[in-house]
Simulated scan of single mutants.
Amino acid sequence: MKNKIKFLIALSFVSIMGSLLLPSSITIPIASAEVYEDLQFLTPVSTISSPQNSNVTNATTTASVPDISKGPPIPSKGYLVEEIRDGLYWITDGVYNTMFLVSDQGVTAIDAPPSIGENYIKAIKEVTDKPIQYVIYSHSHVDHIGAAGSIFPNNVTYIAQEETANLLKEANDTRRPVPTVTFTDHYELNSGNQTLELDYKGVNHEPGNIYIYAPKQKTLMLVDVIFPGWSPFKELGITTHVPGFVKAHDTVLGYDFDTFVGGHLTRLGTSEDVILQKQFVNDLTNASMTANSNFDFGSFAQKYGMTNPWLVIEEYYNAVTNDCTDTMNEKWKDRLGGWEEFMNSHCWKMTESLRVD
């Protein structure tokens, strides 16, 4: 039973991401639990291989995405590394992405997604033989920094905002070493001929999530807030503070940047992607406000009675959320990748925020 559960979790992830990211001509193999026993949610993409088994049944993906969502193809080695400009590189496996900066003294790595894992080190070695000196955490979540403890040298300096440091101390997770350098609002990292500016402007995705800016390269990184070409992940990127998430769009647009790195999915972004997602969020806010005003909680209490208050609240919430979802689906159909998958969750998150925040 344990192996079966592991198989189903892994297969669900592979199937879902495959349907979102892969061309329709590519097939995803389905095999027995024994074949995929060791698959995990954060297994590096390059290590997931097709079993040579005559009993395998192929299921062809049918989901399509708009052109705006498509990024460069991922090589067979499982990752793509490219120079953005002037010694700043990005690496992606098609689901997660991050960046690293090479100076005349060494390398500054940002985050360490487990899905990329050791391929991060391979990518760095492809472009430089300089040592890794610094590791910057964008925030505390394990899906973005969970490989740090296993892939980086023991003598690197870890840098993070103090809220992130506090969360990591509480987590006590060896996969995510506690930062050795912390800051409150602003930190400038100078390494030889390169500079990175780190800013914390309040809670957006989670406490401690920072803006990472390379001024020379005019590149900005903010993780789990902007999803270039795509709808945000579920519940607005599982944000812990919707007002901060909304405000972050204007904060991003206040930077002078040509290239944006968002931490997820298929491609790099530009200011146009930020403007488009800001429009999405504005429409979501308006649809949520309208939906909240369209339904009276008292009428649900009268209809169902208050013997089971949770039933009344759930029916009320469902009506409001579905109203918002219908409005947003009609307005945003096929304009962003994954527009339909998480729309209901976005509407739930925003309508609830407008009720309580």
Results as ranks from 00 to 15, higher is better:
340 E>L: 06
252 V>Q: 01
286 N>D: 12
209 N>F: 06
125 K>F: 00
231 S>D: 10
112 A>I: 04
264 H>K: 08
241 H>L: 01
167 L>V: 13
285 T>M: 07
64 S>N: 13
221 M>Y: 04
356 V>A: 13
328 M>T: 05
194 Q>S: 15
228 P>G: 07
354 L>N: 09
26 I>Y: 13
150 S>K: 13
68 I>D: 07
192 G>A: 06
285 T>A: 10
230 W>F: 13
57 T>V: 14
199 D>E: 12
355 R>H: 12
249 H>V: 00
203 V>T: 10
2 K>T: 11
265 L>M: 12
50 S>M: 01
36 Y>Q: 09
161 Q>R: 09
212 I>H: 11
139 H>C: 09
152 F>C: 01
117 G>W: 03
1 M>H: 13
259 T>K: 06
184 T>Y: 02
6 K>L: 10
280 F>N: 03
217 Q>D: 08
136 I>K: 01
312 V>W: 01
49 S>A: 12
116 I>T: 01
351 T>D: 12
297 F>W: 09
115 S>W: 02
319 A>R: 07
271 S>N: 14
103 S>D: 02
43 T>M: 14
178 V>L: 13
261 V>C: 08
84 I>G: 04
65 V>C: 02
196 L>T: 12
172 N>V: 10
232 P>C: 02
331 K>M: 08
151 I>G: 04
356 V>R: 11
75 P>L: 01
304 Y>G: 07
257 F>S: 02
74 I>P: 04
209 N>Q: 03
343 M>W: 06
214 A>T: 03
345 S>L: 03
254 G>P: 04
54 S>Q: 13
308 N>Y: 10
231 S>H: 10
315 E>S: 08
204 N>M: 04
67 D>R: 12
100 F>N: 04
272 E>Q: 15
250 D>N: 14
117 G>Q: 02
292 N>C: 13
227 F>K: 02
88 L>Q: 02
142 V>P: 05
304 Y>N: 05
121 I>V: 15
138 S>V: 05
156 V>W: 10
119 N>I: 09
202 G>V: 00
214 A>E: 05
47 T>L: 11
240 T>E: 15
110 I>K: 02
77 K>F: 00
195 T>M: 14
85 R>T: 14
294 N>Y: 08
155 N>W: 14
181 V>E: 12
7 F>M: 14
280 F>I: 07
68 I>W: 02
275 I>Y: 07
326 D>N: 15
218 K>H: 13
51 P>L: 00
343 M>N: 01
93 D>T: 09
225 V>T: 08
302 Q>V: 14
207 P>S: 09
331 K>W: 04
293 S>I: 05
141 H>D: 11
204 N>F: 01
76 S>R: 06
44 P>D: 00
60 T>H: 12
188 E>N: 08
11 L>N: 07
261 V>M: 12
2 K>I: 10
146 G>H: 07
209 N>G: 11
300 F>V: 00
313 I>A: 13
315 E>Q: 15
188 E>L: 15
163 E>Y: 14
